[in-house]
Design a protein around this nucleic acid. Sequence first.
DNA 1: GTGAAAGCGCTAACAG
DNA 2: CTGTTAGCGCTTTCAC
Lengths: 335, 335
Amino acid sequence: MTESKRAATVRDVARLAGVSPGTVSKALNGVGQLSPDTRARVHEAAAALDFQPNHSARSLASGRTFTVGVITSDSFGRFTIPVMLGIEDSLAAGRVSTMLCDGRGDPVRENQLLERLINRQVDGVVVTGRRRDPRPSLGEVPVPVIYVLSESLDPADLSLTYDDRQGTELAAHHLLSTGRRSLAYVGGPERHLASRLRREGVERALAAQGLELDPDLALYGQWSETWGRSAATIVLRSGHSVDGIVCASDQIARGVLDGLRELDVQVPHDIAVVGFDNWEVMVEGARPLLTTVDPHLESLGREAATRLLSAIQGDEPLEGGVITRGCELIIRDSA
Amino acid sequence: MTESKRAATVRDVARLAGVSPGTVSKALNGVGQLSPDTRARVHEAAAALDFQPNHSARSLASGRTFTVGVITSDSFGRFTIPVMLGIEDSLAAGRVSTMLCDGRGDPVRENQLLERLINRQVDGVVVTGRRRDPRPSLGEVPVPVIYVLSESLDPADLSLTYDDRQGTELAAHHLLSTGRRSLAYVGGPERHLASRLRREGVERALAAQGLELDPDLALYGQWSETWGRSAATIVLRSGHSVDGIVCASDQIARGVLDGLRELDVQVPHDIAVVGFDNWEVMVEGARPLLTTVDPHLESLGREAATRLLSAIQGDEPLEGGVITRGCELIIRDSA
DNA sequence: GTGAAAGCGCTAACAG
DNA sequence: CTGTTAGCGCTTTCAC
């Protein structure tokens, strides 16, 4: 709380190196033409004084803040955290910091946050949210923006997300290729795009083998364990001899596993179960350990940040469109 | 990505209001002596131009950035997120933003982050981490710092945390007051302070009734469901007729519940179970719904931010010491 | 190659 | 009460 010594400024460095402040700036930022010798002297002096450029001054003069804003609609929830870790990871290298804001899913609040970020002159913005359903665009923003997970409704924006369909397709394919023939799908609410896409993935894998997903075995419900438990009963009572279940989330899958166990069904012997998310807590608490689809959220975050950075540096706007990355199947004991 | 119109500056506002830039600054910041009339004219002009003060310029001139840094050692994990939400919540009112950094539990990295924050001239810093065990101090820092959850080893720092002992004491007291007599405690690893403190809470509640925690029934293990399941078996095989179990976390409690169910023990009829954390996912997946201790992390975050703010505004350093807040028992169906 | 000078947009001290 | 005057610390032309 003391450390009274005034922080060193460019002028101090300049004086020590026997050059002018302008030269110090060039040397330290590696721009312009300077003799290697001067450059070295400046660096030495800066090191000697433990010089740290004042960030506000630099921003004011250069117009860049080396800060990007992240607006989430997910209260830093379980889906956006990995994304944020990826962003931080990829940004840290360029000494760029992130300013995190929680929009709480409220568009009005979101716009206020955006204004605050713009007013703070952030160099770019990442928008992310839990829901897979497309979201309204932030509209015209004076800096590059990239949407992650929840894609923007406006095709002029750039969105980056993972492939729900391919994820469950992978899961179903795995079940089929290990000899399962009769699959069920336990989704979340039907109004959620993710629920519907994931169902389609299962259907696609089945179709590839000339099979179909029986409508009785395509269930929609909640994103909860409780629903998973009920669903297990429903599937067993359906009269179909199901031998594989693809679930739309790890929580649902866990409920299904618990439900099946209570009905004395052996997993994976009698029925194989696959989840979605690769959420550690759920996966590890599950018995048997859950085979699941990993959407690699962290690498989505990393990629988003990398793209944003290059847009910032190149000053060329991001091309609009939706980029979709594949998921990976993580095989454990339940399938 | 366009919006070419240059943003309005104080000078634009001054011109429109027919006053000088200095006056605009005073009017908008509500400082100094100004006629109500002028003040109003300035505000009007500012509104008309949709004036947003440039943040970097303001920081450079005033030395304040209206930004606080948050360093977490928990990768934005489940414990620090509620704390952060509380911080954001309480800071947003003062138009203060937060800059979040993940130290990954690495002291070296932590120090780099701190330097970056200081270099960005943050007005204050919050340090938080998952572990209850005291952590090394950040040492001399030119701005106020407050530690949340993990208290600082240096008594000159201000730390804010919750009361583990009181939490489990509450839990055990509840069990005793509903007629349970023979309690067990299932902790996490013994090397974790939280495990030991929570055990002490149980002992205290028992002592208050002239009872004791049998050493056989004070178990240390892991912070996992798996351990909870094993612990259930251990307790039942102990030969003691236990009728209440206090667990050191909701995950453990959930394992205990699953373990008991498989051994055909009725909860809460035969044995009552209490958890710790009030972690929604665990609480709601548990059967029966878990009675648990809530450490109110979000309000710790809010309080930390409030204290930090007043230290920043008052320019008086934070008083050293550890402030401990009580937990609350949330009664559901398991006890 | 390097230095001098101007200015980013705001605040703050001091005159008037 | 209000305007003027200096900067805050850095970058960035533009001469030399």
